[in-house]
């Protein structure tokens, strides 16, 4: 094989390979605006996280602003502690509230941030005070049924059963 032909083929091969990586990065994946260099971490405690998983998106006004990095259980408060990496471009006030929402009826769960009014901004390592846990579908159905039948049993008890 002539050297020039060989070089040409290898050139085509390498370019095609890099193009494939680029395709994966840009078209298939969300080319990381969230790599660790440009994020800051905040925490929030929830009484119930439902089906939230690590790497679930954190959205504000529908825009993805970060990702859940870690979920753990706090044995002093008996609550779930969720750490999330937020994009450094987006700053939120200290009294921002976090709630766990579901996209669609059965879709994946995400954290929605609602900005507060305080002047001070959240910094790396801060915790959000105002949180609202996941709406568990069973609880909802339970509440609905009990309110219908005017039962004396309180709905939250049923929630604790699951």
């Amino acid at each position: 094989m002539q050297r020039a032909t060989l070089d040409l083929w290898v050139g085509i091969f390498v370019v095609a390979g890099l193009a494939a990586v680029l395709f994966l990065a840009l078209r298939v994946g969300n080319m990381g605006s969230f790599d660790s260099a440009s994020t800051y971490t905040v925490k929030a405690s929830f009484d119930n996280i439902g089906g939230l998983k690590a790497r679930a998106p954190v959205k504000s006004a529908g825009v993805v602003v970060g990702r859940v990095s870690d979920i753990s259980f706090d044995t002093t408060l008996y609550e779930a502690t969720v750490s999330m990496n937020l994009d450094a471009r987006y700053k939120f006030p200290k009294d921002t509230s976090a709630s766990i929402m579901t996209s669609g009826l059965l879709g994946e769960q995400y954290i929605a941030l609602e900005a507060g009014g305080e002047e001070k901004m959240l910094a790396n390592g801060d915790a959000m005070k105002l949180t609202q846990g996941a709406v568990v579908l069973e609880n909802l159905i339970g509440q609905f049924l009990y309110s219908k039948s005017d039962s004396e049993t309180s709905a939250p008890d049923l929630g604790k059963m699951e």
Binding site: V21, L24, A25, R27, V28, G29, N30, M31, G32, F34, D35, R55, P57, V64, R67
Partner: peptide, 15 residues
């Protein structure tokens, strides 16, 4: 098809 894919596939974690 594409938007759900992009939302789910993370560049660093997956690719």
């Amino acid at each position: 098809f594409w938007s759900q894919m992009q939302a789910a596939v993370d560049f660093r974690e997956d690719i």
